[in-house]
Design a protein around this nucleic acid. Structure first.
Lengths: 326, 326
DNA sequence: TATTATGGTGAAAGCGATTTCAATGACAGG
DNA sequence: CCTGTCATTGAAATCGCTTTCACCATAATA
């Protein structure tokens, strides 16, 4: 492996000069030219490891996600990757498989390991999380949850759910049921359920708390909860779900129980999943700019890292949403 | 930041001893104990950057994918991540957005940058790719394509497509059309089409080459191609697609043209997408163990890196498939 | 008793960059 | 002619760890 010293010797300069050439320090045009040639000739590339050791910066961003094979997350990740690539960083991806402890583990790992910053696609935020975020040695941005005192990019799940509930209340005749997710997930669990309930109530069609079930983000859990609902309360006429994935499961359940094609008029979700949209013609759901949230969060993070001129540092950013098919 | 020297001083030993303690070299029980305490006391963690510089190994694996927000790829990635995490490595993810040149770019970047090995989720393999793979300084494993002389984990697309075509030929009465993808993608483009054609032919129902269209892996492209097919050849009664995603698009097109619910009996795909399965009750498709391919490829790669005892080095591995709903 | 092994040990030499620092020569102003 | 700037320069000091190497006990062997 050709190193800086080799280039320096070939160009007849000191390695300090080469380093300066590479990093834009004082260098005469004449030597710059010789160095340039020497580099091309040798095909030299500088060791990012040595550089990292010396400068303390690795140009690596840790990205922690709860699950990589989910449409929303992979969209977010795509957005993060876009910005990272454009700005000369690389992505260190950590998948926690929905285990909150693995999240903490990685948060820890990344601090002592070589990342310049962290993007956390958050689900549950426990006190331990808050503490870990607080004491994080590198800048960190959350996506998906609003945490006081932390930099975050999120959507207003309460508001969106309220609007959805309000809109649906008028359109549905009969009982509405709800399949949510754990309330430890503040945004997708608590906020969506509360917002939805409030929306229904405001429209004069309050949610019967006996018709609330808990799923686990998976299609199968949505299916199971819906089957159970339909057998316990056969008069339920609409099932709202906290995610499109669970809505797909509920839809199948309804199709099975009530006949093919029935489901698509009787479920709603969150996330505007492309498959679901295409296959059903569009169930009521909320469209979130997932890719955008990845982009915004990453820009925010890199701006503070690169010490951008503008005062655009870490802050909190609420993105808009859009009701679909209501 | 507390460094090894600090720990050594606190424990009253040399830093060499600490390093040996950490890496399992000669160390007396007594000193090991003192070092252990000193580490706990100071909360020392070793700098992976210094370690990387010294040892030349970063415990980082570069993963190049064509598109992160796709079910198959994110499943593969999940599998890769599982193994990596379990074996103490981390994943450096690069998303090429289906641009073959970006693939080469990353292949290059990763070599001069800090990865110990590379997993390439491959689509198109040009000669330039072959050259880049050949001359790669770190071990590399391909997923999804079979390339002579390179380590790869792949599925037998020709065989699977043949079986699917053969099975469908008997079940479909009327004309069958095919929406494929670029043949530059040997596996998903060339092999699937060829296999499917051969399967139909073997069953005595050859594919009319006028009924072949090209999509681009997206749902919309499947939709567009199907609409065009249906208007040009209204007597087409079945549309086979090279991916489930495109099949979803075709399904929607048929629903629009022929009436809701018609599509699901008149399309087939590849990949066994969970959404599609749930929402349609299951179209004919091929199930591939995507997660498994990620797992296998990564194990293969890490085995050579860790110089595992067994002779399980880089080789080529063909995984099985399973026809669904035929 | 003389000699090997053998388990332990620390000093010191890197790994390949960046960055400080003192030195240099050129040049303008006084 | 002297002095003060100013752009350039290379030697050398790090960055924090791993790893050789020489060396020392002590136990085992001849």
């Amino acid at each position: 492996m050709v190193k800086m010293k080799d280039v320096a010797e070939l160009a007849g300069v000191s390695s300090a000069a080469v380093s300066r050439y590479l990093n834009g320090g004082y260098i005469s045009a004449d030597k710059a030219q010789r160095i340039k040639q020497a580099i091309e000739l040798t095909g030299y590339v500088r060791s990012s490891q040595a550089r990292a050791l010396r400068t303390g910066s690795t140009k690596l961003i840790g990205v922690i996600v709860p699950k990589i094979n989910s449409e929303s997350v992979s969209r977010i990740t795509a957005g993060i990757g876009q910005v990272l690539g454009r700005r000369g960083y690389q992505m260190l991806l950590a998948n926690t498989d929905n285990a909150a402890d693995r999240e903490l583990e990685y948060l820890d790992l990344f601090q002592n390991h070589p990342v310049d910053g962290i993007v956390l696609v958050a689900t549950m935020i426990t006190d331990e999380h808050r503490r870990a975020i607080e004491s994080c040695r590198v800048p960190i941005v959350l996506i998906g949850q609003h945490v006081e005192g932390a930099a975050c990019v999120y959507h207003d799940d309460y508001e969106a759910a309220f609007e959805l509930g309000h809109a649906l209340a008028g359109r549905v005749d009969g009982k509405i049921a709800y399949i949510g997710v754990t309330e430890e997930d503040r945004a997708a669990g608590y906020d969506r359920r509360r917002g939805f309930e409030a929306g229904l109530r405001a429209a004069g069609n309050p949610l019967d708390s006996a018709l609330i079930r808990l799923g686990s983000f998976t299609l199968d859990s949505g299916y199971g909860a819906a089957r159970e609902l339909l057998s316990v309360a056969p008069d339920v006429s609409f099932i709202a779900c906290a995610t499109d994935t669970m809505a797909a499961g509920a839809l199948r359940a309804i199709d099975e129980v009530r006949g093919m094609g029935e489901g698509m008029h009787r479920v709603s979700g969150f996330g505007d999943n492309a498959f679901l949209r295409a296959l059903t013609g569009g169930i009521p759901t909320v469209h979130y700019g997932y890719l955008t949230s990845g982009v915004e969060a990453t820009n925010m993070l890199l701006n503070t890292l690169d010490g951008a001129e503008g005062e655009n540092g870490l802050k909190t950013l609420k993105l808009g949403h859009q009701l679909m098919n209501v």
